[in-house]
C-alpha cells in the first residue's frame, strides 16, 4: 500500500481474530461464555465469572447509546480522519465497546445519544465496526 497510509491494524491472535473476522463479514460480535452465558468485551480466553475456556459469539444488534466520547484533534496520525470522534457505546446487549462516531459534526456528539453500528471500509479493504447517530444517513 505504498503511498496510501492506513490505520494501525490489530494483531490477530487466538483471543481476538474472530472478532475482526466477524467485522470483515459486516457484523459486530460479542463474546459469550458457553458455561454461564455471560457476555464479555473486550474478548478474553477465559470467563472471569466461571473460568470456562469455552466460548462462542453472538451478533450484536448494533444499537446502543453513547456512554462517553472524546474528539481528537492532535496529534494527527496518517490513516485516520480528523477531527476524530471516539465513542464508548453501551450496547443494548449490556456490553460496552470503544469505537468511532462517523457521519456526525463533532459539535453534535453528546452523552446518551442513540447510535447504530455501520461497517466502515478502508481504501485497502480493511473493515471495522463504527457508529453513527441513529437515523443519520450517509
Amino acid at each position: 500500500m505504498a503511498g496510501q497510509p492506513s490505520r494501525i491494524k490489530p494483531p490477530l491472535g487466538p483471543d481476538n481474530a474472530w472478532w475482526w473476522e466477524m467485522a470483515a463479514e459486516d457484523k459486530l460480535g460479542i463474546q459469550r461464555c458457553r458455561g454461564c452465558k455471560t457476555l464479555r468485551h473486550p474478548p478474553q480466553p477465559m470467563c472471569g465469572e466461571c473460568r470456562s475456556l469455552e466460548w462462542d459469539a453472538v451478533e450484536a444488534s448494533g444499537r446502543g447509546t453513547i456512554c462517553s466520547f472524546t474528539v481528537l484533534t492532535h496529534p494527527q496520525f496518517p490513516g485516520y480522519d480528523y477531527p476524530l470522534v471516539i465513542v464508548l457505546v453501551d450496547l443494548e446487549e449490556g456490553t460496552r465497546v470503544t469505537s468511532q462516531l462517523v457521519q456526525c459534526d463533532p459539535q453534535e456528539v453528546d452523552f446518551g445519544l442513540p447510535v447504530e453500528m455501520v461497517i466502515h471500509t478502508d481504501p485497502d479493504g480493511f473493515k471495522l465496526p463504527v457508529f453513527r447517530l441513529t437515523g443519520a444517513t450517509a
Binding site: I8, I86, L128
Partner: peptide, 14 residues
C-alpha cells in the same frame, strides 16, 4: 499488544 490494538485500530494512540 492485543489490549492496545482495540484502541489503536480506532486511532486512540496516545
Amino acid at each position: 499488544y492485543i489490549h492496545y490494538s482495540w484502541y489503536m485500530a480506532y486511532g486512540m494512540l496516545v
